[in-house]
Each structure stands twice: as C-alpha cells, then as structure tokens.
Amino acid sequence: MIPASFDYVRAKSLRDALNAIGTDGTKVLAGGHSLIPMMRFRLAQPGRLLDIGQLAELKGIDLKGRGARIGAGTSYRELLDSPELAERYPLIAEATRGIGDVQVRNRGTIGGGLAHADPASDMPAVMLALGATFNLRSKGGKRSVAAADFFTGAFTTALASDELLIDIALPAPPKKAGMAYASFEQKASGYAIAAAAAVVTKSRKTITGVTLALTGVGDRAYLADASGAVGSHGDDAALEAAVANVTKGIDVNGDIHASVEYRSHLARVVARRAIALALSRAG
C-alpha cells in the first residue's frame, strides 16, 4: 500500500502555511491519521502535502476565563492529558478515550479530525453539544463558524480551500450541567454505528435543559431535538418519548454493519442512555 507520488512541504509558521494553502492539488496534513490511510489506497492522490503538524501556533489548550480555546493541532492524547479540560468539559475526555486507539490518539489531532468530517467520528457530536465555534483563517482574513454550520455533509465542511482551522472556541458550559457520551461502536473499525453526546441541566429533580448531538447516523453529526425531556424527571418513559424522533428528517445510513432500522434504533438507545447518564451527573 504505497501512496501515489506527491510533493511535500513542511510549514515553518502559520503565515507560511496560509501562503501555501489553496494552491492546486494541495492537501493539508496534520496528524495524517485520516489522510494517509486514504492515500495508501490511492483514494486520495493530492499533488502536494502541506504539513502543519509542527506548528506550535496551532497547539495548546487555553482555559482562561470560563470557556476554552483548543488549538486545532492539539492531539487527542494532549486533550486527555489535560485534567483541567476534563474537569470543565468531561464530555471531551469521555468521547476522546474512545477515539481510535492509543496510537491514533497520540498522532491524530482534534482539528484534523473535525476538518476531515467523517460522518461516524466522535468529536463533531461533542463540538455540537458543547456549542463550539471554529475559528478559520486564510491569507485574506479570518472568520468564525458555529459547529452547527460547519459540517455540511460526509467528509465536507464549511472550510474554503484556502482556509485553515486555527482553533476551537468553547463557551462556558451551563452551570452544574451533566455531560455524557454514549457510543455503540462498529467492532472492526471502532467508529460509531451511532453515538450521542448530551449536556443536561436540572433544577432539583426536574430537567431544565438538554442539548443532544448524534453522530454515525447520517451523513454528518447533527443536533437532535430532545427538548421533550425538559420538565420531566428523566424517568425511562419520559426519556424514551423525548428521543423517539431523534432521527426524524435524517437520511439514516444502512450498511453491512447496521441496517437503517437497527441504526435508527441504536440512535434512540444511545441518545436516551447519554441523556440519562448526563442527568445522573448534573447538579
């Protein structure tokens, strides 16, 4: 499995990278754990790779204030190695532990994974549930895109060809929110057949807010409506009803691992389980 020939450029600075990006046939290489396997099968044959893996500007976790800013080049391993991040956003740690395997987490980056936009990857759902904003930059300027507007389809995003994902801004989580990630994995690849990220708030015993995002189900991760749970105590019947329509309007995937019917069912199961678990952690 040998990729087709290409040229390789290692960016020495962010400016360097922004100058080089967008030229014909150039693909951005971060950790490479999404791109290189596709290149080995020659499913991707870029003429040139722009390696941004060494850019210090893109790395790091900034927890000043009550939110967070995560550099796009931060590896999954670095996310897991930050107890402060896990404290503030336990959802990130819970989901990240299940991404790929140790070796993949050591190399793979949060920005690389988000820009790759695999319909079954975990982090997009987490970003949606946390209300993340993605900061993009090109030679011409910068702009911010809400996670909800970023994922536009399978392996496609709002990123223009000359734009780079610089960092991810996370708002402060709702006070005393409980968070949970529930995933049902395909046994070979480890990717989600269906997974759910939930952020739940409550007042006394009553649910006051639910943010739910699903991945693996359709062509992209999406925010699903589970507002039916608000006002309930989160008992089985209430949650069952609240997640009954989480795949409504979604073109649910069917493949050799899960039929449309089974995957739709699993979407409801992981949604309910994530909300229930998040609720148990709230308050």
Partner: peptide, 19 residues
Amino acid sequence: HLNGRATKSCTVLAVQAEG
C-alpha cells in the same frame, strides 16, 4: 515510539518524522 509516544509507523511519512 515517536518522541516517546506509541505511533503506527505505517501511518506516518518518513518526512514527517524528521527531527
């Protein structure tokens, strides 16, 4: 190990490992 961390060397280009 790449800088002390377990890494799948079939998913890293040699040029990436320089340094």
